Simulated scan of single mutants.
Amino acid sequence: MNKIAIDAVLGRIEESTGQDANPRISAIVYRMVRDLFYMIDDLDIQPEEFWAGLNYLAEAGRTGELGLIAPGLGFDHFLDLRMDDAEARAGVSGGTPRTIEGPLYVAGAPVAQGEARLDDGTDEGEVLVMEGRVLDGAGRPLPNATVEVWHANSMGNYSYFDTTQSAFNLRRSIVTDSEGRYRFRSIVPVGYSVPPGGATDRLLKQLDRHGTRPAHIHFFVSAPGHRKLTTQINIDGDPYLWDDFAFATREGLVPPVTRVEDAAAMKALGVDKPFSLIQFSFTLHADTANAPQAEVARQRALVTA
């Protein structure tokens, strides 16, 4: 079709909009329809291909895989980069880099003061201790900051979504002490892959791509008067460290992992074998009226007592 004919169809669709339509939703819908019309025409997409694509998205919605497809196609990372750019234009820069939240957060994790043990003791993976501080932009400690942490087990699975794990296994909210310090004991996570044969896996295979993430630990970090940080650290040495299918690895978020073999340190932790230690501090930006909202509203799992 020529441009005049396509624009005529688009014009009829837009003219059908009622006077009480939501202007923001209307603008987004009609821009999406316009771009898709031109894509269909430019790529000569056939009716069978269109309906196959629609059915694919419906299946991905039913199986809950849209939350994997979005980061796998770079949308989550792109939104992070747009937020970085908006903050920079508002004069907010530096600090701990943000990176994607992912689809596996669960609200309502138990709250601990200063330090916590994340694992329930059933996973025989390597013991991990991670500690550090939450700081403001001037490097001053932030007491009573909240460090929400969640990660996969040694099989690459997350509690709640993996019903074989205990409630809130490898999930906690830790409130920093008077010196802004947090500390937790857990097990070293491993990376995970998208469900084999699922919607995400089939799409990535059509693109000759893998669907594996490196081992990582997620965080929400917040403090009164400061912008909430969504980030994650990756476990150094993972073979997929810089080949994350979700494009989430960023400079500054790969802290060194130290192997602790000191007998006194092992005894103090109550373990009889060496463990891994990660030291990492988070730097938060102060609230500013010029910067975009840091708290992202989206659907998340919630467990209540």
Rank of each mutant, 00 (worst) to 15 (best):
3 K>A: 14
4 I>C: 02
8 A>K: 13
24 R>P: 01
26 S>Q: 10
31 R>V: 00
33 V>S: 06
34 R>P: 06
37 F>Y: 13
38 Y>K: 08
38 Y>G: 02
43 L>Y: 12
44 D>K: 05
44 D>A: 12
54 L>Q: 12
60 A>Q: 07
65 E>S: 10
69 I>L: 15
69 I>P: 01
70 A>S: 13
73 L>T: 15
77 H>K: 13
77 H>F: 04
83 M>G: 00
89 R>H: 09
89 R>T: 05
92 V>L: 03
98 R>Y: 12
102 G>W: 04
108 G>Y: 06
117 R>G: 08
119 D>T: 12
125 G>V: 05
129 V>P: 06
131 E>C: 08
132 G>Y: 03
137 G>Y: 01
141 P>M: 11
143 P>N: 10
144 N>D: 15
152 A>S: 15
153 N>L: 02
155 M>H: 11
156 G>Q: 10
162 D>S: 13
163 T>I: 13
164 T>D: 15
164 T>Y: 00
166 S>T: 10
178 S>E: 15
181 R>Q: 14
191 G>Y: 10
193 S>F: 07
193 S>Q: 13
194 V>I: 12
195 P>H: 07
198 G>W: 11
201 D>Y: 09
204 L>R: 15
206 Q>V: 11
209 R>N: 00
212 T>G: 01
215 A>T: 00
219 F>A: 09
221 V>T: 04
228 K>Y: 03
231 T>D: 06
232 Q>C: 10
234 N>D: 08
237 G>F: 04
238 D>Q: 08
239 P>G: 08
240 Y>R: 12
243 D>K: 07
246 A>M: 07
246 A>Q: 11
246 A>K: 02
248 A>Y: 06
254 V>Y: 04
257 V>S: 03
266 M>K: 06
266 M>R: 13
267 K>P: 00
267 K>L: 10
267 K>S: 12
274 P>M: 06
277 L>F: 07
279 Q>G: 03
280 F>S: 04
281 S>I: 05
281 S>D: 14
282 F>C: 02
286 A>H: 14
288 T>N: 10
290 N>M: 03
294 A>Y: 06
294 A>L: 01
294 A>I: 02
295 E>L: 13
